[in-house]
Design a protein around this nucleic acid. Structure first.
Length: 438
RNA sequence: GGAGGUGUCGCCUAGUCCGGUCUAUGGCGCCGCACUGCUAAUGCGGUUUGGGUUUAUCGCCCAUCGCGAGUUCAAAUCUCGCCACCUCCGCCA
């Protein structure tokens, strides 16, 4: 959700943001009308309610006096007064009830519209669709396998050869887009987890193991029930959702809280399984474990002052690079275009790893500055010398297991199908420097 | 899953039986002011959150007593449903 004051003072800012995203500009016009209507209805209710309270205050004492009244004349007189008040109170009560219902309906209508508005885009973000990103930097050099004299195997072949990934049995048990990590593959994930958590804690992030099943409020608050809703698993029987990232439980963690500014920034590193329906991606990445329904991920999540958010965003990107650098994988960093930000992000940087067998860079991390958007929806505020106001939240991938494993296997393979473990990971692999075909 | 108990504006707490002077009591903490060599102590005032109105300020109004519905002219208080926590029983990684 966006600061409603902007709607009243500068609605064109909202329109421009929607335009850049390729989303409805007319929505803002509807919002302007709904906002006025809601305030009018609310005001009407407030006034009627005030009248009702004032009237009610007269009835109490009068009835007290009535009870004490001795002689019949004063009793009759009081009774008459009470009856008259009660009669007007009765009609007023009906009006109050109607006004309350109208105000409530207007409020709900307004809220429903707000939920459809995506976050204000950062004006630095390149405008356009998925393909309109700008490349910020390319790091490392893709290996020249032709010069080395052998064609690279893809991660599916390598995974099979090494006994590290079992996709066929994943499909047998759970259907397509499920897999088993086995032997060295499983150890690799555990090593990556340890490396990621070691790095995270060295930077002061608080390690967290989070729920993977959350209530609708957490899902909605993080903005995943908008356009992204079709990719979310819902547990019908219990009205709960399987998270697609631990961003959801980490954002919900402080919902409805007011955090003292002296505690900020709060930085977490969450570890959880992630579940994605991948609806509408039929035919995309059907081979391998680039796009799967369930995987594990270490996610960084930050709560900070809004004025610190951009610096914090840069910091998250830096930590992501540090991790991928340590794995010695060639990559590039892109500034994601406005049409591809998702509803919550104002700005987003992706890191894309070089995948030799695809001859392409593929996303392995993503960091978003969601400014105050999620905080408003989840009612997370901060308190400083200037009072109470929403804070900013940010998130960034530290290590999404399957894609990192893909990048590791493919980039560090040797002619015989063995894979060199990068030095940074070896301490967490029991000193192992190469995994070889079984 | 079953039985019982609890839920009040940072923390603790009064109020709930018996609806209306509750505009929610008191203490602690915190903020401001006064007093005092300093500190402490004391005194006075303030201290939930959200919205509206006004905006140069002060102020005024509405909602908010776990959440939601209901009864009533009127609900912290009565009724129903839900949630969380605690105790015990049952079941179970």
């Amino acid at each position: 959700m966006i600061d409603p004051t902007i709607l009243r003072t500068d609605p064109d800012r909202l329109r421009e943001s929607q335009r850049r995203r390729g989303e409805s500009v007319e929505l803002i016009d509807e919002l302007v009308v709904a906002d006025v209507t809601k305030r009018q209805e609310q005001q009407r209710f407030d006034e009627l309610r005030n009248e009702q309270k004032l009237l009610g205050k007269q009835i109490g004492p009068l009835q007290g006096a009535l009870k004490k009244a001795g002689d019949d004349t004063s009793r009759a007189e009081l009774q008459q007064q009470v009856d008259a008040l009660m009669a007007s109170a009765q009609t007023l009560a009906d009006q109050v009830k109607a006004a309350e219902a109208a105000a409530g309906a207007a409020g709900e209508a307004l809220d429903a519209l707000w939920l459809r508005v995506s976050n204000l885009v950062n004006l630095e973000s390149p405008v356009g669709g998925e393909a309109d990103f700008t490349v910020i930097e390319e790091v490392g050099t893709p290996r020249d396998f032709a010069a080395e004299g052998f064609p690279p195997r893809d991660h599916v072949d390598l995974g099979e050869l090494l006994g590290a990934i079992d996709i066929e049995r994943g499909a047998k048990v759970s259907g397509s887009r499920f897999f088993y990590l086995k032997g060295p593959g499983a150890l690799l994930e555990i090593a990556l987890l340890n490396l990621a958590m070691q790095q995270a804690t060295s930077h002061g992030l608080i390690p967290m193991i989070t729920p993977a099943l959350v209530l609708p409020s957490a899902m909605e608050g993080t903005g995943f029930l908008g356009q992204a809703a079709e990719n979310v698993y819902r547990i019908e029987a219990d009205d709960m959702y399987l998270v697609g990232t631990s961003e959801v439980p980490l954002a919900g963690y402080h919902a409805d809280e007011i955090i003292d500014a002296s505690e900020l920034p709060l930085r977490y590193a969450g570890w959880s399984s992630c579940f994605r329906r991948e609806a509408g991606s039929y035919g995309k990445d059907t081979r391998g474990i680039i796009r799967v329904h369930q995987f594990d991920k270490v996610e960084m999540f930050v709560y900070c002052r809004p004025e610190d958010a951009e610096a914090e965003h840069a910091r998250l990107l830096e930590w992501e690079r540090e991790f991928v650098d340590a794995l010695e994988i060639p990559y590039r960093v892109i500034d994601v275009a406005t049409g591809d930000l998702g509803s919550s992000a104002a700005r987003k940087f992706d890191m894309e790893a070089w995948i030799p067998t695809q001859g392409a860079y593929r996303e392995i991390t993503s960091t978003s500055n969601t400014t105050e958007f999620q905080a408003r929806r989840l009612r997370i505020r901060m308190r400083d010398e200037n009072g109470t106001r929403p804070l900013a939240t940010l998130n960034g991938t530290l290590c999404a297991m399957p894609r990192v494993i893909v990048a590791l296997l493919e980039n560090h393979q040797q002619a015989d199908g063995s894979v060199v473990i990068p030095a940074a990971l070896r301490p967490f692999m029991g000193g192992l420097d190469v995994i070889s075909p079984t």
